[in-house]
Design a protein around this nucleic acid. Structure first.
Lengths: 352, 352
DNA sequence: GCCCAAGATGGTAGCGCTACCAATTCAGAT
DNA sequence: ATCTGAATTGGTAGCGCTACCATCTTGGGC
């Protein structure tokens, strides 16, 4: 019965077993095998057992390309982040991967390098595969990207921030409030000449800066010369350099709010090197609460941001949407937490 | 509207333009469009222009799933790394992405969490898509994984290490020699009671430890109680904890070789906190040379490892292999570089 | 003028899977 | 008995693309 069959198949087959091989070995139709794989509940236990036995015996693995073509849906979730150097996004990715355990979904991941054009290109590329979901960073897509996302035909989650107008769903926290909270903490601790250091100055950094500014203005402490930023990438050494610039401009600084922890760490080292006591002479706070902040000497006050949780939640939202559940609230604010540590201990803020 | 057409096509088409749409608009055969996309040289300039005009007009994007199915080859490179928390692999990924600019290749990336079983599962999963290449970390695959890789039917690059028996190609450096070099440097600086701190203790950590041990034994300084390790993940705080353990065991320590920079940073902070001068009382060296090592106070001696370059080179090797070039030497050793800094400055090693 | 190689182009048959129906069975309702 | 609907299973026609040939030029060597 299969002479003709063999003659026909020999031409281009990859040599690997196919669904049809499994089906004939198990004595069922191909579609039943497909169902046993995608939705086991819909196949009787009896057949299911035989089918899985055949799969094991043949070492069958489903061909995801054929599956994606036939169903116009790839078991892939596209993830776009602006950077990998940045520890923060590595943890988001970890959260995403963790949320994906025991799922057949794959992550396809792209690095936009903080470029909106690159983001648009990647969204286009990802959409061409008909992904099951898309996760993008931030809320500042170009109009063209936004239009692409709106007709993506799959769940879309914007992560890291919350805002009023989600493409589909959103999970993050308010960088503006984060900036406010850490600045207010420094004011409460008695600091007045509180500088702001920022690198990269992507939209999220700007919103943190706005938070800083709003609190400083309310306290009548704002002074533009207290703000030192660069569009260059953030790094520990950049923290040191920004500190030098800031200290030269405003030597009466009594505290620094850093746009992120890398910078804060750079400031700490620079202060050590310059013999400036932290927090005795200068109080110091970071943003994100990387693991090292709590063990630094002195330990450094920071805003703990729910990076892992954001990834986890984003995947949960994608999966829920895939099974038809619409979230009651499409925007999830995971908040943040101020971690007060030695670097802003108020006992030392008197001597200014 | 054209009823017949709609009746036939409306059923399952995705609604997006296909190759056939482009072909009919350009007045050519579908295969010619396919060729214009994959290998423009083989299509006359005249047709090429018309085809690309049609593509632009229709907003056509190639369906990678259909392409992969038909050609039994996906434009995807699978990348397996053991961790994302670890900065080191983030930089390798950066190098990979950077090497991929202007290529239609995509990265599909998987996290093995330092588990050989997970690695095997992921290799199997990746291979099911017929990737164009595979990049895996390390050289300690299970026999089953190795067998899968050997008949992968695509270029395979093992990264991070070099060894005698590549599956296909290899790019990395010798962790054993790295461990030797940094330890020898400490010996040369006059240290004798040189401890080793290690976390995670994956195979690469073990090889660094072996390097340490071989040099220490040659100098007749080896003492098992100088070695403090844990299988728990590496972190800055873990560095502090290992330091406490080590210092309690061997209070006459005059130097520490850390398995990586995170640990070294933790040790530095712990020393600050304990009032132990670095390098006055204890010399300190890390491994990998993360950016912050050079700006820490004191700056920390480390082994600079070519992480970005490894990713870059791995992609270059995959691409070369895809176009049929076999490298003259399948194993590329990118080496490493000892960065001597304040934390091991010999001026301070007398007072032991 | 003829032949053949090389280059350009196209027709068609799959690649391996799933959507869409249809067919079958069986329990429970009428 | 007959009908109805749910549950289970299968046949078949694509999904959109590329491999494999076939065909049709063109140009140069003899």
């Amino acid at each position: 019965m299969d002479t003709a069959d063999v003659k026909n198949r020999a031409r281009r087959s990859s040599g690997r077993p196919t669904l049809a091989d499994v089906a004939s070995r198990a004595g069922v139709g191909t579609i039943t095998v497909s169902r046993a794989l995608r939705d086991p509940e819909r196949v009787s236990v009896d057949l299911r057992t035989r089918i899985f036995a055949a799969i094991d015996a043949l070492g069958y693995v489903l061909n995801p390309n054929a599956s994606a073509l036939a169903s116009a849906r790839a078991d892939v979730i596209g993830v776009l982040v602006p950077s990998l150097t940045n520890n923060v996004f590595a943890e988001v990715l970890r959260g995403i991967h963790d949320g994906l355990r025991d799922s057949r979904l794959q992550i396809q991941f792209g690095n936009t390098h903080y470029s909106e054009e690159e983001e648009e290109r990647l969204v286009r590329m990802f959409l061409s595969q008909h992904p099951s979901g898309l996760i993008v960073s931030g809320i500042d897509q170009t109009p063209a990207t936004r239009a692409l996302l709106e007709k993506a035909g799959c769940p879309v989650v914007q992560i890291m921030e919350v805002g009023p107008d989600p493409v589909d769903m959103m999970v993050g926290f308010s960088h503006f409030e984060g900036g406010r909270t850490v600045t207010q903490h420094l004011l409460d601790a008695g600091c007045r000449r509180i500088g702001f250091l920022g690198a990269r100055m992507d939209p999220r950094s700007h919103r943190r800066l706005s938070g800083y500014r709003s609190v400083m203005e309310a306290a009548d402490c704002f002074d533009l010369s207290l703000v030192t930023t660069t569009t260059l990438p953030s790094s520990v050494s950049m923290g040191g350099e920004l500190f030098k610039t800031a200290f030269a401009k405003t030597p009466d600084l009594d505290a620094l709010v850093c746009n992120n922890d890398d910078l804060a760490m750079g400031v700490l080292f620079a202060c050590h090197r310059a013999g400036l006591d932290v927090p005795g002479r200068i109080s110091l706070a970071g943003f994100n609460d990387l693991e090292m902040m709590s063990v630094a000497f002195p330990s450094i006050t920071s805003i703990r941001t729910p990076r892992f949780e954001i990834g986890h939640q984003a995947i949960a939202m994608v999966q829920a949407a895939m099974s038809g559940e619409r979230p009651s609230e499409p925007v999830v604010d995971l908040g943040f937490e101020l971690k007060v540590r030695e670097s802003t201990s108020r006992a030392n803020t008197q001597n200014i």
